[in-house]
Structures are given as structure tokens and as C-alpha cells.
Write a protein that binds this DNA or RNA. Structure first.
Lengths: 254, 254
DNA sequence: ATCTATTTGTACGTATGTATT
DNA sequence: AAATACATACGTACAAATAGA
């Protein structure tokens, strides 16, 4: 292991726009700027950094691409500190996995570990509005699908059930990771052949799990909720394994 | 390369650089370009999109900020498709949590759920080199720290133990999430007061867990590894709870 | 609705920097 | 060492968007 003192990294000489972007970032941190706060305008940036308009603009585009600022034209316009949106964060992270070959199993390994934990903590803490929303969601797939397209829509809807739950967690990290996985699964391309009909019985059991889960959540029975979700995940995983699916290779654009 | 077609979503009126960046992204996907493949040069981009150099350059900066391309000057230079690095992905995701108030407990809730799972799958599959690396790592904190600074270094080193493990997983998602959490914890600022000495006994037990874990991993005992890691996480969580720590608010720059 | 002021957005020409041959 | 091919940076002019009078 190299000593900590020597900067053994020969940085590939950062381009000026990147330098400016980094400088602005640390300036925002130092000043303790909050979302909505205005950044200096182009002309002032040009003066402060003694750099051309183009360079400054490229720097702003970098910050914008990372979701850290939003820019508006017109009077009172300019660039404003912006909280990185969840959608943007999911898109950026999704790009990381573009060249990795993430499998269904990889995702379900985490879902199985995390989602039971999620609902155990949620039991008894959900307002009736959310419980109703969950129940309304399950109604979207109360009957078996008759076409492949309907099946896909139901599949996405049933995933939404989990996104709703994830959004309720007061653990931002847990919430994000589950939401991200749900997104990845929603983006799947289904390759199942027509002669391989869906396992209707397994599917019905999946929905049944969700219905029972809402009951447990309403009653505040965290242990039951955890157990139901665990069984649900195992069933769903098995269901996915039976079908031929593969991760869609694409970039996400928020 | 397709012309800049009208964006499917007309709502927020994307700026031209963003449009170009998106067009290039989907072009890369359509062409199935792989990391290392060269993109058209500036002049050709200018011709294809019928746009100015500045606009094209801003578009490239956007892609670069997202970690999707790298650009080199000189003959044979240009922009090249690039696999988003793990460091970049961690930095971008870290920015998402900048304005969220993520607590130690939030992170440990996930560690407790994921890391036992990780080591259970790793047991018996690690090459001797990695096992040796893990053991060498624990040697860095075999003795109790005498200064606050040494304690901090030991703390970071003990986190590195988990990063090494995470890197061994063949589940890219699990690997990333754990690595990300380790990074977040390494970035913590310790605020413990001097008159509140570290709990040396708890600390020693933490290291003991790691040593025993390596043994279980070498012997291929997944069950034991899972149990040890679970206990380790619970102890570490308790240790962190006892100290006054808070998430450092800063942007990460890769 | 129209004008006006403000601020970002786009275009383009020129010059400089950098790495390969 | 020099020529070449490419990105990088600068400055100016003008276009577009938006809020307010």
C-alpha cells in the first residue's frame, strides 16, 4: 500500500471547465448555499475566474448535468442551486450499470434482503391515505392478463406497489435503493414466448401477498409484514426466473 | 447519426446542448458502441447537427460530466465512449444525498441487511491473495489508537476491510451499494470529545470479528461468516452510536 | 398586448495548446 | 525537430426567453 503523503495519482490535468465547475461546487459548500439560492451570473463568473464565456458555460453545463444547478433565462434568471432530484440520481446511477451485466438475480438478492426490512419498519406508521393507495394499486391487476401487453402493464403496476412503499421510508438510502431497483426492473424487456404461458397461479399468489401485506401494515404487525414480504420476494424471484428476461441495455435520460 | 429530432417530451423545452447530448447517447446505444470506441470529432459533429462549436462542446461536457465519454487532444484524439467508473458513480450518487440528512443509523440499517448476505455468498470462493489482503488490513489496527488522528486512520482502514470484501462480489449492485456506504462512512467527521475515550474493549471485539470472519471465509463456512458479520455490524453500529458523529456535508469530486 | 430591460443561449472566427508521427 | 491533427480557449456579435412596466 502506498504511503498517504505522496500524491501518487498523476491527474490527467483537469480541463478548465472542470476546474471551474469544481471551484463553484466548493464555493457553494463554503457559502452554505441552499437549493434555490442564486449563483453569480455569467458575466460575473467571467470576471471572477478571468475566463471566457464559453469556458464558464461549459462549467455550468457540467454542474447542470450532475443535477446540481438549474438555469433560467430572462430577468431574474440565472443559475440556481438545485437539489439533485431522485429521478436524476437514478438515471446517473443507471448509466453506471449500463456496461455491467446486472442480472435479475442480482437485483432480487438485494430486494430479498432489503424489502422485508423496509416493511417491518413501516408497519403501523403508514397513514390511511397511503394504505388506500396501495390497495387501489393492487386493484389494477386483480384479474389475470389476457394479452402480453396487458401482462407487461400489470407487471409494471405491481412493481409500483413497491415504489410506493419505498417512498414512505424515512431512511433516504433504503428508500432510494429500492426505488432504483424497481426502476431497473420496470425497464426490463420481456422475451417470453407466447407458447410459454404465465404461471397464473404464481401470479395470483403474488397479488395475494400484497393484499395481506397491506393488512399487516395497517394492523402494525411488523413481524408479519416482514414475513409476508420475504415470501413475496421469493415467489416473485421464482416467477422471474421462469421467464426469459434480460436487462435492457440503454441509457436513461431522466 | 440521427439528426436532432424533436424531443419526445415537449414540456420543459430542453436546451440544445442537452438535446445534442441525448441524441449522441441514443446513437451510441443504437450503434452498440463499446468503451474505447471513438465518437465523431468536433468538426463532424458540427456538420451533422448543424450547430456551432460551442453548442457541441457543451454537449460533450455534459456527457463527460456523466462519465460516459473521455476526451483526448492531439492526433488520434477526440471523444471516446467510456464506462462510467465506480468512483464517478459514487460521487454522483453522493451528491444526491448532499441535501438529504442521512444518518449513521440509516446506513447501518442497510449494512446490517446486506453485508451478512455478502459474506455468506463469498465464503469458499475467495482466492488466497484476497484472504491475505484482508488479514494484512486488520494488522493496521491490531493495537489501540493513542491519538485521535490515529484512531481516525484506523477507523478508515477498518472500513477498507469491507470495501475489499465488496469488490469480491460478483453481484455488481451489491458490490456497489456496500462500497458506496463504506465511502460515506469514511467521509464522516468525528466530533467525539477527548474526555470521552473510545471503548477499547468494543473496538478490540470489532477487530476480532474481522479476524474470525476471514477464517470462516477461508474454510468456506457461509453460515458462520453470515453470523459473524451480523454480530460485527451490530457491534459497530453500537460503537458508532456511542460517539458523536455526523455526516459531513460536502460534494464529492471523484 | 406591447415594449423594454435583463440574462442566458447560440454562432463564428481566430488563436493557442497538446500529443502523435 | 517539425509537421500534422485534433481539442481547447477567447471575444464579439446577435438571438431568444422571460419578467415587469
Amino acid at each position: 500500500m502506498p504511503p498517504v503523503t505522496t500524491p501518487s495519482k498523476v491527474e490527467p490535468k483537469l480541463s478548465r471547465p472542470v476546474q471551474v465547475a469544481e471551484a463553484i461546487k466548493s464555493w457553494v459548500v463554503e457559502e452554505g448555499l441552499r437549493p434555490g439560492d442564486r449563483l453569480p451570473g455569467e458575466v460575473e463568473m467571467i470576471a471572477r475566474f478571468s475566463m471566457s464565456k464559453g469556458t464558464i458555460r461549459e462549467a455550468m453545463r457540467i454542474l447542470e448535468a450532475q443535477g446540481l444547478i438549474k438555469t433560467r433565462t430572462g430577468p431574474g434568471g440565472g443559475s440556481f442551486v438545485h437539489e439533485v432530484s431522485r429521478e436524476r440520481a437514478k438515471a446517473l446511477l443507471g448509466n453506471y450499470f449500463y456496461f455491467k451485466d446486472l442480472t435479475i438475480g442480482d437485483i432480487y438478492q438485494l430486494r430479498l434482503a432489503l424489502e422485508p426490512e423496509l416493511v417491518a419498519g413501516l408497519a403501523g406508521h403508514l397513514p390511511e391515505t397511503v394504505l388506500a393507495e396501495l390497495e387501489a394499486n393492487t386493484a389494477q391487476y386483480s384479474h389475470p392478463a389476457r394479452t402480453l401487453d396487458e401482462e407487461r402493464r400489470q407487471h409494471v403496476a405491481s412493481l409500483r406497489f413497491h415504489a410506493i412503499l419505498a417512498a414512505q421510508s424515512d431512511n433516504p438510502l433504503l428508500s432510494f435503493v429500492i426505488d432504483f431497483m424497481v426502476n431497473m426492473l420496470s425497464d426490463l424487456t420481456v422475451h417470453r414466448e407466447l407458447y410459454a404461458p404465465p404461471n397464473a397461479e404464481l401470479w395470483a399468489r403474488g397479488r395475494d401477498y400484497q393484499v395481506r401485506l397491506v393488512m399487516a401494515l395497517r394492523e402494525g404487525d411488523g413481524g408479519a409484514a416482514r414475513a409476508i414480504m420475504k415470501a413475496h420476494m421469493e415467489t416473485a424471484w421464482a416467477l422471474m426466473r421462469g421467464q426469459e428476461m434480460e436487462m435492457q441495455r440503454r441509457f436513461i435520460s431522466e
